[in-house]
Structures are given as C-alpha cells and as structure tokens.
Design a protein around this nucleic acid. Structure first.
Lengths: 209, 209
DNA sequence: GTCTATACTTCGATAGAC
DNA sequence: GTCTATCGAAGTATAGAC
C-alpha cells in the first residue's frame, strides 16, 4: 500500500504517468515524444523500447481507464435496497458514488483528457459515447423505471427523467474540464456539489408523489 | 441577395470560407496552411497576402461569429409581451429562436468549431464561457425572475431554474457537435427537438402554478 | 496578387554503438 | 535499455521574380 516514489518506478510506468499528465494538460497533439522523454529523463529513442508508438501510449491510457471504470459501480442488490428507501436516499448515495469516482487526482487527469480529446480522437470519442453517456443514461432509465413500478415517484417517461438527471452531470463535466480547467479543483467541486444539490432537489420535488 | 458562386468571391473570402470549413472538420491544429491553400486553389505563400498568419484567419472567424451573435436576440418589449402570455408561449418562442440561430449550414460549422476547439484555444474558450454560457444563464435567470414576479410560475430560485433549463441546451450542443459529429444534421435536429420538447415540458410542469 | 524557391523548425520514428 | 546520430515528412513563414 506504500506510495511509490517516481524514482523507483519502472521506466514504462514513468512514461505512462508523464504522458497522462501532459496529455491531460495539452491534449494529445499538443505533446511531443521529445517532451515526454525529457520529462521522464531519457532520450526520445528510448521511449520506443517501451511503447511501439505515441499512439500506443494513448491506447494504454484508455485501456487503463476502461478497466478502472468497469470496476466501479453499485451491486444490484444494494441498489434495490436503496430504492426501497425512496428516491431521496438513492440520489444522495448516487451522487456520492459519482463524486468518489471523480474526486481523485488520478481520475481528474483522465477525465480531463477524455473531455478535451473526445472530438480529436475516435477511440476516445467512442469510449465517451458508450461508457460515459449511453450506458449511464440506460442505467438511470432503469432506475427511474423501477422507482415508478415501486410507486416511489410519478409515472413519467423514465428515459426523459434519465436525461433530466444525467445531462446535468455531463454539463458539469463540460463546464469544469473544458471551460474552467484553469480554476482550482477543490473550489470548483464545492460549487459543482452545490449546483448538483440544487439540481437533485429540483428534480426530486418535481417527481415525488 | 443572390447566392455568389465560389469562383466569383475575392480570394480573402475564399480563404475565410475554406478555413472555416476545414477548421470545423479537423480542428485548428489539424489543418495546415498548405491544405487551405490547396483547397482555395493558390500557393501557400499567397495566403500571406491576405492574412498575416494562420492565427489571424482564426481571429477573423471568431470576430465574425461574435458580430453575428450580437445581432441576434429578442427586443425587450417583445420579450415582456411574451412573458405576459405565460411560460408555455415564451418557451415555445424561445426554443424557436435558438433553433433558428443554430439551424443554418453556416452556423453549424462555426458552432462545431467553437465546440471542438474550446479547450485548445484560449480566445475561443473565453468566448464560449462569456457569450455562450454566462450571458445566456444570466438572461434566463432574469426571465425566470420576471416570471416569478408576475406570478406566472412558482417562486423557486431563478438561477437554479436558469441552470435547469440551459444546461440541457449545452448538453445537446455537446452531444451533437462533439460526440455525434458524423451523424446526419437533419435527423439529429429532429431527435434534439424532441428531447428539447420533453425537457421543456418537464420543466414547465414542475414550475407551473 | 500569384508564383517559385527556400529557410527554418519540429515532428515521429529508426539504426546501430555501447 | 539507453545513448548518439540521423532520416524523411510536414509545418509556418519569407524573399524576390513576374
């Protein structure tokens, strides 16, 4: 569990870390192999002993991100229990889950990379579409569907409700990672949490029975 | 009023048009001076007789966009009249205004350019923040404030309502211009209008007295 | 206002010595 | 596994003839 110092890490891992850091700051095209090598402390030719190409580094980062995401989430039985306790409880826990996923230094970098390179890189774009938009929308649609069946909320269109809830999350993403990337992360999170709280409160008031 | 053919336009205008087209497809960094020149039908050195640099072309595009935006909008008296007729009417007209602004071939290119280059270019980012986010949020906040004073809607927090309404618009922007840029514009607009309709309907139901 | 020609820089990637 | 050296391609931009 000890925090490894940068000096102890294998070179391949250093390349990964440095690339993630630089890509998330300047975008993929904004970073050169030479810059990565300089930051790692080796020559650019040595990079190719660890990764076949610059794109292979990006692929490794995306794969890592995918794996991380698939490990997260709430077990179905727990979700069922939470819904039984009513929408307020579920949303409180749901919000906390998202925030815990986002609110780490490592994840912040990778969220930003995805946000800023979504258009320029097809792999990242497909990943965003499927894993960060369509999949969550479907999940939330199911959640609202179940809540309706349990008569916990009004019988509105569950897909509309999913968009009502989740599009705001995407908006907050976009607002921070693309528009306000130069602001302080903690103070943004405070404001974002407040906005998310207002949003959830408004939604709950609108759908409660 | 006649539609000028490309061949009749001054070279400077051709450079502008071609650059806008290419930038909106590939992003600023994804397009070279050589490519612009090739598409216009001149040598790259000739570009510099019309624009000082590649960046100057982008600046001209942004300026044009700003001017266009400042020309749009609804006069205050008309807005006041509409609000008097209730939120349903106002939103129907408001939605139509947005769509008329977006739904042109020329505007589509420039919306997309702004969408995809917001992170990579500071001028575009500042423009997006101020003109496409903060300014509209403030406008909508005022609209909701007035509606509350007129007792047309529930006395909720007007800024929260502004975010509830407008963040969805930004989301639709992001969804189309960044995530689904390779899809057909018209069929997307159909779907987007349906989503916007659902959203507006949900919001109106939640705030009506 | 357009052309040819070219300067200068930076890029990703490779060969081969150690 | 790292180094030096170098390649070829592509980028922005300029000089000067026409």
């Amino acid at each position: 569990m000890k925090k490894q110092k940068s000096g102890n890490k294998p070179t391949k891992e250093k390349i990964f870390d440095v690339s993630l850091e630089l890509f998330s700051q300047k975008g993929y095209n904004g970073v050169s192999i030479r810059e990565i090598a300089r930051e790692v402390g080796i020559r650019e030719s040595s990079i190719y002993n660890h990764y076949k190409s610059k794109e292979a580094i990006l692929d490794a980062i995306i794969d890592y991100f995918k794996t991380k995401l698939n490990q997260s989430g709430l077990p179905d039985e727990d979700a069922e229990d939470l819904m039984e306790q009513g929408p307020e409880v579920y949303f409180e826990v749901g919000a906390k889950m998202y925030i815990d996923q986002i609110n780490t230094l490592e994840m912040e970098k990778i969220w930003r990379l995805v946000s800023i390179e979504t258009y320029h890189n097809e792999k990242i774009r497909e990943f965003f579409k499927k894993e960060l938009l369509e999949e969550p929308i479907t999940v939330w649609e199911n959640v609202f569907q179940i809540m309706i069946e349990k008569k916990k909320i009004k019988p509105l269109n569950p897909r509309t409700l999913a968009y009502e809830y989740f599009s705001f999350i995407i908006f907050l993403f976009f607002e921070y990672f693309v528009l306000k990337y130069d602001e302080d992360f903690d103070s943004f999170m405070d404001l974002a949490l407040k906005k998310l709280g207002n949003h959830t409160e408004f939604l709950l008031e609108a759908i409660k029975i």
